[in-house]
Design a protein around this nucleic acid. Structure first.
Lengths: 218, 218
DNA sequence: GTCTATAAAATGATAGAC
DNA sequence: GTCTATCATTTTATAGAC
């Protein structure tokens, strides 16, 4: 057998240059906004291109398919969350009060970002539907669990506290996801407010219970 | 002015005859199955027609648009729920035990009907996105709240009990919707089971608290 | 009421100039 | 890297025979 020359391809991949990265991000942002605005059903590549102020062919230069673009949008959402996690959030000292403050902050956010919240749920369902992309939905949730989990305790270097923080975070997320749908559907603010108070009470109780169990086990 | 002859149109509307109703229902069922199977993104009128074993033109004879068909599917889902409500469900006597049994039954159902649950959430989001159809999402939730609410107390003729049953039902629904997404995303059964136990404890506590408050107020 | 055939528009994607 | 122009399908929807 003769020798085989291996050629290293020097061709820059789409999005490698500075301007390339910029355009790629603009397309993702455009997709996000178009999705928040009109929902999944109306989300066409043409609309995305228009929203990103880019020609249709340019969109396809950066993303080989609509599917890969949508998954990139979800990844971008996750990155945003991880970014937000790095920022310090002003919270009370006592863990239970922190949980309460977190839920109240989330609730305020939910009330003024309807399109964004629905878009996020649509994308999550899309990932769950897209074969081979379920891991993305998992990553999204894990990012949220990390985020909320770290905020439960001011100092969670202790392994037990980390575990408890994550358990509480999962329950908070369950409650928040559930209330997003229900509050937008029922459109009854006073009822939703009651539900938020109930959620807060439940989460305080859950945290307290986990702490008691932990203290017993020492 | 002369007299105006008013002609009563005798033309039967689509779906008025016996066979018509049958076909219409078959189309709705076909749409439901196609949706559960492949998700919103892949849900085209052609696929629906094929799934219902009907020609494309027939579909359009019964539904003036894809949108009206999808909304009919959601209405059908609601009707199913109201039908299920009429059936008696075997439940324990004590309200708290009933709540626990309801959550466990829901959880078992969720685990074996992934496609159906995702389809339902996709449709709810679709209704929330479709201008003028938000009321459908509200009706869907109210049907569920009625359903769960009536099951909390064996006898809820008392107005306080009905109110409490509905409050608990709303919280249960929030938890169940939240856990649908999270359990499918995380794909971690032991974690989801923990979350279900936590939800049960929380709901028992909530019900107990509401009952105590009510007793104080007499 | 259901079908075949087809219209009319929209969609995801590519070729190739600049 | 971005554009214009265009392709190849696919999609929703309708006309009209049976």
């Amino acid at each position: 057998m003769g020798e085989t020359a291996i050629t290293i391809r020097a061709k820059t991949a789409p999005g490698a240059t500075r301007k390339g990265v910029e355009t790629r991000n603009r397309i993702i942002k455009g997709a996000r906004e178009a999705l928040e605005e009109g929902g999944m059903e109306a989300l066409t590549t043409r609309r995305i291109a228009a929203s990103a102020d880019v020609k249709l062919a340019t969109l396809h230069y950066y993303f080989e398919s609509k599917e890969s673009l949508l998954l990139a949008v979800l990844e971008d959402l996750i990155a945003d969350m991880e970014e937000a996690y790095r920022q310090d959030v002003a919270l009370p000292k006592a863990p239970e009060d922190r949980v309460e403050a977190l839920i109240r902050a989330s609730w305020r956010y939910i009330q003024r970002t309807r399109g964004k919240q629905i878009a996020q749920q649509e994308l999550t369902l899309y990932a769950l539907r897209t074969k081979g992309s379920e891991w993305l939905a998992a990553r999204q949730y894990n990012a949220y669990i990390d985020f909320y989990g770290h905020l439960v305790f001011e100092d969670d270097r202790d392994e037990d506290l980390r575990r408890i923080g994550r358990a509480v975070a999962r329950q908070m997320l369950i409650g928040i996801d559930g209330i997003i749908l229900q509050s937008y559907a029922l459109q009854d603010l006073s009822t939703s407010n009651d539900d938020i108070e109930a959620l807060i009470t439940a989460m305080r109780g859950y945290l307290r219970r986990l702490m008691v169990e932990r203290d017993k086990g020492r």
